[in-house]
Nucleic acid binder design. Sequence first.
DNA 1: TGCAAATGTGAGGATTATTCATATTTTGAA
DNA 2: TTCAAAATATGAATAATCCTCACATTTGCA
Lengths: 211, 211
Amino acid sequence: MEGRVGSQDGQIASPRRAPSQQRSRERVERMLAAASALIAEQGSDAMRMGEVAERAGVSIGSLYQFFPDKRAIVWALAERYTAESQACISAALADVSDAEGLGQAFSELVDIYYRLFLAEPVMRDIWSGTQADKALRELELADSRANAEFLTAVLKRLRPAADPAALETTAFLVWQMGEAAMRLAISVGREEGDRLVAAYKRMALRELLDQ
Amino acid sequence: MEGRVGSQDGQIASPRRAPSQQRSRERVERMLAAASALIAEQGSDAMRMGEVAERAGVSIGSLYQFFPDKRAIVWALAERYTAESQACISAALADVSDAEGLGQAFSELVDIYYRLFLAEPVMRDIWSGTQADKALRELELADSRANAEFLTAVLKRLRPAADPAALETTAFLVWQMGEAAMRLAISVGREEGDRLVAAYKRMALRELLDQ
DNA sequence: TGCAAATGTGAGGATTATTCATATTTTGAA
DNA sequence: TTCAAAATATGAATAATCCTCACATTTGCA
């Protein structure tokens, strides 16, 4: 009843061949767009390579010309999301210089993420499946570390006397807790989700500001 | 290259037929034991139904006599773990009556869980894949709620003046954060993992005791 | 004993992911 | 412009896997 999704080795799935011509670059975009639409409709697990090819208007062989396997497509989409959000997060935290500013920026960041998770089925699907796929897990971990570093930088400015290593651990943990809180929040009802996100915010800020 | 793992509907995978004879009960045990061993060796994703049957010394058809599909086997193992751990957690929190006691019990509980995650590849694998499988996700959520309730009961005793709804939210969130922290801790190096777990403990207790 | 229910079996059906031999298009140097 | 090499396109065929089902065997029990 099935196809399987490759062996369990978590190789970073890089394009089998980078599209060098204008034509192929456009086709790869179409493939990713098709995959994105299908994931939004049915989830990445139910996404079929044949459907992706058909919807992108390319042959199945062309798909495999640029993506070594199914997971690579999901990975490529995930990478785009992380790149975008990192830029956003970096900007939001760049010029925070006092506790109040951190509270403000962090709170907004959480809201943005929460809304994004609620509104973006693709993102939701991809980050949900994160744990099952080694390459995705590593991407998310790297992303999380990068984001935590932005937060660490702020903390070091706000609390110069504190142990830097401890600040790093705190920032990383708080950030990961945030991602977990989001996943939890979207998997329960909206009201409870809102409450949980609010509770997370309080908890995180208390920890970050060491109050 | 593959088989697929069932449609994405998250039906609770209950035995197709409960084994009623001694013989079949023993065989089902062998099936679960075989599955457990294979998951420990290669992960549940790489576990093949044919291998499970072979190692259990039964035919593939017998497997499907008692388990409607592959996920049902994983689910059955997961259910056992949750039943066991709930009993353990309930016992640990049952007679907590002051802040110090909570600190003690909670800290021990976290340690036990952490060690369990580190030592039990099966448990680790199952809870990692949790997000990808609807039935597993629901099982984990229900388990988490049940455990959070034990914690809530303690909090209500310790802080009778507090808003009960807020305590429930706090307990649930803290518990889920704990599971996330565990997953994170075992996916990074041992040293960093230890630091993260310690940091989580501090954060959680601060929140639980509202200090 | 004998019959119905429970259980056991494994070859084959059904899906999918992925490959590969071959055809077509583009590029860039002569 | 010409043309060979590189890049790209194609989809039928392959391979791997889950799961079904028609039929065989065993067990419980009146």
